[in-house]
Design a protein around this nucleic acid. Structure first.
Length: 306
DNA sequence: AATATCTCCAACCGCGCATGA
DNA sequence: ATCATGCGCGGTTGGAGATAT
């Protein structure tokens, strides 16, 4: 249940709008001798500010806090944002947590002003998309619609349907994403993959298999890595962190770890025991596909049900 | 040069969740 | 179990600066 906003509750006489240099200095000075754990409500009073605690928190967290990276988003950061957004949707705080020095507000702004248009444009060009309503977990007004690559919708659906923390604790033994994993309708034959090429691979988090190569010929499967099973968790955010970390580390490792070929992992599904990462291996290193480039990759991936 | 329109982003708003009384 | 409170999050807004007409 919500409540009336703290700021308006405090009453009149408080500053609003853009912060002045003097106000910034007061807040900085305050946090030179205090930590952030003392409660925001008391901060303005102790710091000598005519602001509500909420406003102080926002200013500190998004602008004044040490280690905040200012300046343009780098291409690497941009790629990461796109990939994480493809996995997590509008979970800005979660995304920001994986990008050092960037705030959720900054990433959110960057997404809406720059990346959403680009992703939408890319989706249109690929003609392989649908309009996907962003799940809104908070707020009350109409949500925006964003063009999402088709293959992203599974994780979106999974996240949208994610249980609350309480529900998750109750249903730990149940599949978080049964509806996704059991959806074998989505398994498609892969006519685009040439015979003899690595093609589709099934990558299990608990035991990852990929073909080894002699030239372009698949000779056998090798186990590559065994990340911790991310699925036995009681906290949905920890689970997502774990999934994302595994996803990124596996993607990176696959991209870097093979001589003569690169691999890309474009998506994953989960059940209560395994994380399934789906991807393809390319023998031609010149055609390495970014892991998040769903519009390019989607035809080379499929979900596999075990 | 003046005005209109667009873009960007800091800040605000309201909600859900966690927590404690 | 219920209620009040504070915090953190995501959606939205307003205004300053940039660009177009």
């Amino acid at each position: 249940m919500g409540r009336s906003p703290l700021c308006s509750k405090v009453g009149l006489g408080l500053n609003k709008g853009a912060w002045t240099v003097e106000e910034d200095n007061l807040l900085i000075k305050y946090f030179q001798t205090h930590d952030e754990g003392g409660g925001w409500k008391s901060v303005p009073k102790k710091a000598g500010l005519k602001r509500c605690g909420k406003s102080c928190r926002l200013r500190w967290m998004n602008y004044l806090r040490p280690n905040i990276k200012r300046g343009n988003i780098s291409p690497d950061e941009e790629d990461l944002i796109i990939r994480l957004h493809g996995l997590l949707g509008n979970r800005w705080a979660l995304i920001a947590g994986r990008i050092p020095g960037r705030t959720d507000n900054e990433i959110k702004n960057y997404w809406y002003t720059t990346l959403s248009k680009r992703v939408a444009l890319k989706g249109n060009e690929a003609k392989e998309h649908k309009t996907y309503p962003m799940k809104r977990s908070r707020g009350h007004s109409a949500c925006k619609q964003l063009i999402m690559p088709d293959s992203n919708t599974k994780m979106q659906d999974l996240l949208s349907a994610s249980p609350t923390r309480k529900e998750l604790e109750v249903s730990t033994n149940q599949s978080l994403s049964e509806s996704v994993v059991s959806n074998t309708d989505d398994v498609r034959t892969d006519s685009n993959v040439q015979s003899g090429s690595p093609g589709l691979q099934e990558i299990r988090a608990s035991r990852i298999f990929l073909p080894s190569f002699r030239g372009n010929q698949v000779s056998s499967h090798s186990e590559l890595m065994a990340p911790a099973n991310p699925m036995i968790e009681s906290n949905i955010d920890r689970k997502l962190f774990s999934l994302v970390d595994d996803y990124l580390s596996v993607s990176t490792e696959l991209s870097l770890g093979f001589s003569g070929m690169n691999c890309s992992v474009s998506k994953f599904s989960t059940n209560s025991h395994n994380l399934y990462l789906m991807g393809s291996s390319l023998s031609n290193t010149d055609h390495h596909m970014p892991c998040g480039d769903q519009s390019v990759c989607r035809d080379q991936y499929r979900w596999m049900n075990t």
